[in-house]
Write a protein that binds this DNA or RNA. Structure first.
Lengths: 254, 254
DNA sequence: ATGTCTTTGTGAACGCGTGCACAAAGATAG
DNA sequence: CTATCTTTGTGCACGCGTTCACAAAGACAT
């Protein structure tokens, strides 16, 4: 089953490190808030605090974009908002389709942050005929048969998958075949895509499990006292009943 | 405004690298699928393919847990499922509260993956009195006033925040004060928490912006041909109108 | 114009994560 | 019991990302 590349940008992004790119939206958000309060300039220290990062890291990040600060003063908020927006490609319009209009899909369609920052929901798509035509967030749901046509007619290059896990790869393949080159995947599956297609995944279940790990660790350390603890935390393992669910559909209509 | 630690585990997790912990749920999912198909053993190569990672990485990851494989054969699926579940703390029950029952909160409440793997939705909480008592996913919504009591009565240590951005920090503070030590944050804000509290964030808007960046990059490279491109992609910047929304609430009820 | 003070931009060191490549371990066949 | 073959477990090297610490740059006061 093909060891296809997964969820790592193929191209090394011409100089700007991936880690930096991932933080730019954070800076942008903080800067937008400042802009709304009509704050003219910020120091790296202040902005870093607002974005929840180290100030040295922030300065280095900005250094990849160019020298937009003034020594002794700080950064011009408006100018920086513009520069980051441009760098992220937010000065242009990005039509997006959402495939799979269950609970999660509907929530995404209603998401306010979509409309802002250049993203526009071009279409909602679902395989369930019962949903076809029904408006969600003011947009009528279209049937999956129309997928290819929708993509091409609207010049969509970004797709969001919020279908059950079982349908995700198939939907992904069709999106890619129709011309989509960036995918945001909410289904709990590993998607295989050709080179040149970016996949980012958001997986609630994984996030929770990571939290559980650290939570268990904390509980263990507390119980033992503070000394080095033996591989595993205290006792407490009840029995090995893992639920009979396996790869559950991400979020289902009912 | 205190430079509080954010979303990095304070403690260095006793030997197991964070990157490895983040992959364990992935392996677990692949293994569970194999288990359901009654596959007795897997090689690192097969499992790695299923999980979408490098086989060497997978073997190194497992080596942190101990030596659970058999050379010349591979790994025992059932045994590995158990070991990883135990390591992640999934053999015990984790009561979870969801605060903010808008579209997203409702979607999360309905999420099948919650119930599985030891996570149990102990309560749904919202500040809107109109929602109080109304069942969502079969669970009646409780009013935010009850938050502290709910946390304590159920021994909740993991909280999910799906409120608008404006309310997130306040909710977070109350959760932490009531004893929650792990938070999954869906609101588009930087949360400040005391040491010892873990925060993980899921931010749709950020993911999209990262995709947009790479998308723009691809478009630029394609247009130029293939050679080194001058800092920014081709022309195409329309004008600097950034939407007037700023920190939009994550996902709103209406 | 000169000096002081603030804040940026970055060189350099360090640590973590990744991937290669191979030796050790065990299964399996003869 | 010996030989062969498969697959694990890991030493090692490399590259990315983070952080420190400081020199350069500019604002501002005198």
């Amino acid at each position: 089953m093909a060891t296809g590349r997964t969820h790592r940008p193929a191209t090394r992004s011409r100089g700007i490190p991936e880690a930096t790119v991932a933080r730019l939206p954070l800076y942008l958000r903080a800067l937008t808030a400042l802009s709304e309060r009509s704050v003219p300039t910020v120091s790296s220290e202040e902005l870093a605090a607002a974005a929840g990062v180290n100030s040295a890291k922030l300065r280095k990040d900005f250094s990849y974009l160019g020298s937009y600060g003034t020594r002794g003063v700080g950064y011009d908020v408006e100018y920086l908002v513009y520069q980051i927006s441009r760098e992220l490609g937010l000065t242009q319009d990005w039509p997006v389709v959402i495939v799979g209009i269950g609970n999660l899909g509907a929530a995404l369609a209603n998401y306010g942050g979509f409309a802002s920052r250049g993203f526009r929901v071009a279409a909602l798509i679902d395989a369930d005929p019962a949903l076809t035509g029904k408006p969600v967030a003011g947009i009528p749901v279209q049937h999956a048969d129309e997928l290819e046509k929708i993509i091409r007619d609207n010049g969509v290059s970004i797709g969001v998958i919020s279908t059950p896990a079982g349908a995700a790869q198939q939907v992904c393949d069709r999106l890619v075949a129709a011309g989509v080159t960036s995918i945001l995947n909410f289904a709990p599956t590993v998607l295989t895509v050709p080179d040149g297609v970016d996949v980012r995944k958001v997986d609630l279940s994984i996030e929770l499990q990571i939290l559980a790990f650290h939570e268990q660790r904390k509980a263990g350390e507390e119980a033992v006292g503070k000394g080095p603890l033996p591989q595993t935390a205290a006792g407490r393992d009840e029995s090995a009943d893992q639920g009979p669910d396996g790869d559950v559909p991400a979020v289902m209509p009912a």
